[in-house]
C-alpha cells in the first residue's frame, strides 16, 4: 500500500478546556475525494487547520505524505479557508501576483485556467466588489496555483447559490481528474457531497466515528424497519433510532443476518450521516 495522503496519530487540539479534537488516529488514502462531515463544532475546521499547519496540535501529530506538519504550510498542501481570506483593496490581478510572490512552486497558467472557467472572473475588479461565488472561485484558483497534492477545502460550498455550488464542484472534480489530487472537503451539503465523494471521514465531538470508502461504509450499515417490541432481535450496533407507536426505524451497523419480521434497506450517504448526527445530538442533549 502506498503511503497515506494524510496520517493523524493521537492528534489532539484543546482550546482551554474545550477539546476540539481528542486523540484522533486515522489514515486517509491518496487520490480520493474525502467528505469530512460532522455536526457544528465537531472539530472539522480544527482538523483542516491542523493539516494546513495554521495551528499546532496540543498533542499527537499529523503528517502529509509522510512529512509531519508543524507550524507552517506543507509544500504539497493547499488550503481554502472558510472565510476566503483575500486582501479586500487589491484587484484580482494584484491578489494573484501577491500570492504568486509568496510561493516557490506556482503555476500562473493553472490560476488563469481556473479563473477562466465558468463565467470567468474580471481580473481588474477589486476583491471587495466580488460576489461570494467569484471570491470562492478566486480563492480556489489561488489554492490550485500551488499545484497541491492534497487540497483542503473548508466549507467550499457555503454562501454559494445552487448554480455556483455545482460549478465549484466541477472545478474541484476537474482538478482531481487532471492531477489526481487528494481532496479533503468539509461540508454540510450532503446531497452535493454524495455526488463527488468516494471516501467518508465522520467526526463527532472531536473524535473520528467513521473512516472508509463510501461504498464500504454504506454496505456495512442497514436501515431496518420492524416491530418496536422486537428490537432485541436485531444484532449489530444501533447507531440511531426513530420510533413510532408500533414501528421502529433503526440505523444499524453490522446487522447481519436481518431478523425475521424486519425489512432491511441500504442507507444512502445522506441518511447515514443524518443518522449519526442525530445520535450525536441526542447524546449531547442527554448529558445536559
Amino acid at each position: 500500500m502506498s503511503t497515506p495522503a494524510l496520517c493523524a496519530a493521537g492528534l489532539s487540539k484543546h482550546f482551554g478546556r474545550v477539546r476540539a479534537l481528542d486523540d484522533c488516529t486515522f489514515d486517509l488514502p491518496e487520490g480520493r475525494v474525502i467528505a469530512l462531515v460532522g455536526p457544528n463544532g465537531a472539530g472539522k475546521s480544527t482538523l483542516l487547520s491542523l493539516a494546513s499547519g495554521l495551528i499546532r496540535p496540543t498533542a499527537g501529530s499529523i503528517s502529509v505524505h509522510g512529512t509531519p506538519v508543524r507550524g507552517r504550510m506543507h509544500p504539497d498542501v493547499a488550503y481554502l479557508a472558510q472565510n476566503r481570506p483575500l486582501y479586500p483593496d487589491f484587484t484580482v490581478r494584484e491578489v494573484i501576483q501577491a500570492v504568486g510572490a509568496m510561493n516557490e512552486r506556482w503555476s500562473q497558467p493553472r490560476v488563469e485556467e481556473v479563473l477562466d472557467m465558468l463565467a470567468g472572473v474580471d481580473r481588474d475588479a477589486k476583491v471587495r466588489a466580488l460576489s461570494a461565488g467569484a471570491r470562492t472561485q478566486v480563492a480556489i484558483a489561488l489554492a490550485l496555483g500551488r499545484l497541491p497534492k492534497v487540497l483542503l477545502l473548508d466549507e467550499p460550498l457555503s454562501d454559494l447559490d445552487p448554480l455556483a455550488r455545482d460549478e465549484t464542484l466541477r472545478i474541484v472534480m476537474t482538478e482531481v481528474a487532471d492531477r489526481g489530487t487528494t481532496v479533503l472537503m468539509s461540508s454540510h451539503l450532503l446531497s452535493d457531497l454524495s455526488e463527488v465523494c468516494d471516501h467518508l471521514l465522520l467526526v463527532v465531538e472531536g473524535q473520528v466515528r467513521l473512516n472508509g470508502d463510501v461504498e464500504d461504509v454504506l454496505a456495512e450499515h442497514r436501515v431496518l424497519v420492524g416491530p418496536r417490541d422486537d428490537e432485541s432481535a436485531v444484532s449489530g450496533v444501533v447507531v440511531s433510532a426513530s420510533r413510532a407507536e408500533r414501528q421502529a426505524t433503526l440505523l444499524v451497523r453490522g446487522a447481519d443476518p436481518v431478523p425475521a419480521g424486519w425489512v432491511a434497506d441500504r442507507p444512502d450517504l445522506e441518511s447515514l450521516v443524518v443518522g449519526y448526527l442525530r445520535a450525536a445530538r441526542e447524546r449531547a442533549a442527554a448529558r445536559r
Binding site: M73, A81, L86, Y87
Partner: peptide, 14 residues
C-alpha cells in the same frame, strides 16, 4: 480581518 491566513497558507514563512 482574517487576511493573515492568506499569507500563512502559502510557502512564505511567518
Amino acid at each position: 480581518q482574517g487576511t493573515h491566513v492568506l499569507a500563512f497558507t502559502q510557502s512564505v514563512s511567518r
